[in-house]
């Protein structure tokens, strides 16, 4: 187990290195500079060059790359070009909390409701329950979350005044965005759980369990649901990463200072160090979540317990 995790961490570092290298050169291929070109157009060429030089942008791209990787190895993600003087590390950590909180709430809420709906639908297969659940699921997938966000903002926030319209001021500010984000998760999870459960219900061991005279509840919880969770865990990884790392549209609609809008803005503004910082952070997070997902498989299904005994 330890060895397995150790190897995975080595892979993680390798992955990060490759991702940052590719991102760095792709990013340098973006047109323009981090500066206000409209204003710089007024300056003589030499002065423009001096401005670039003061940020080390006059050096060959490869030299910039080597310097950057050296700094990252030391744990220094550099200083933003756009938010002058601010450390990329500080920017990311201050922007992460709102996105992560909203994302986490959306995942938990989506997971809970989605599983309940999926289980009910499978258990009451081909009944009104099933159809109702699947209609909800289809709606959840097909209504874009920003439409829902705008509706929630207008009705719950403005018309009924139950929750804040927007901004990030206190805990209630996080509720509407979480709801807007979780609907997609509900729909996805419900459909997955339903399909998986229907399949598991057809398995021989379920028939055996029934033949043994086990109670319906016991069969459902001990055998069916647990075995249906494998596929849920598989899709949960990307869902978690997606939601915890922010959503540009939802953040903009609710005026939330999250990391999703930071990433998009940094690309638009050629804020090199921030682009790199967030890329590295996202990748590391993604790879870590994948590791956790792999470990969770073993927890849910003993058949795929990893490298046990041999390591």
């Amino acid at each position: 187990m330890k060895r397995y995790i150790g190897i995975r961490i080595i892979y993680l570092i390798l992955t990060l290195f490759i991702i940052s290298t590719v991102t760095f050169f792709l990013m340098k291929a973006l047109p323009g500079t981090p500066f206000d070109e409209e204003k710089l157009a007024q300056l003589p060429q030499e002065q423009k060059q001096m401005i670039y030089a003061s940020y080390g942008l006059d050096k060959p791209v490869f030299t910039q790359y080597v310097n950057y990787i050296k700094n990252v190895a030391k744990g220094d993600l550099g200083t933003s070009f756009f938010y002058t003087g601010q450390k990329v590390k500080d920017i990311i950590s201050s922007r992460l909390f709102p996105s992560a909180l909203i994302g986490l709430q959306a995942v938990l809420l989506g997971l809970a409701i989605g599983m309940i709906l999926g289980i009910v639908a499978a258990y009451r297969h081909n009944t009104g329950w099933d159809y109702a659940t699947m209609i909800i699921a289809v709606l959840g997938v097909s209504i874009p979350n920003f439409v829902l966000a705008a509706l929630l903002q207008y009705f719950v926030g403005l018309k009924w005044g139950l929750l804040p319209v927007a901004f990030w001021e206190s805990y209630p500010s996080s509720i509407l965005p979480s709801i807007a984000l979780c609907v997609g998760v509900i729909a996805l999870i419900a459909r997955f759980v339903r399909t998986e459960m229907l399949e598991v219900l057809d398995q021989d061991y379920v028939t055996t369990a029934k033949a043994k005279g086990l109670g319906t509840m016991r069969i459902m919880f001990q055998h069916v649901i647990r075995n249906s969770l494998i596929s849920v865990i598989t899709i949960l990884g990307p869902i978690v990463v997606n939601l915890l790392t922010g959503s540009l549209v939802i953040e903009n609609i609710f005026g939330i200072p999250g990391i999703g809008s930071l990433f998009v803005d940094s690309i638009k503004m050629n804020d090199y160090s921030t682009i790199m910082g967030i890329t590295i952070f996202y990748s590391a997070f993604y790879v870590l979540v994948m590791l956790v997902v792999d470990l969770l498989y073993g927890l849910v299904d003993p058949r795929i317990r990893l490298a046990s005994g041999k390591g």
């Binding site: 950590s93 201050s94 909390f97 992560a100 909180l101 986490l104 990030w168 001021e169 206190s170 870590l288």
Partner: peptide
């Protein structure tokens, strides 16, 4: 780790909600 930051709602220090 996802929430390692100073968990605060910015602006809340300046104004009661």
């Amino acid at each position: 780790s996802a929430m390692f930051t100073g968990c605060s709602f910015s602006g809340s220090d300046s104004k009661p909600a």
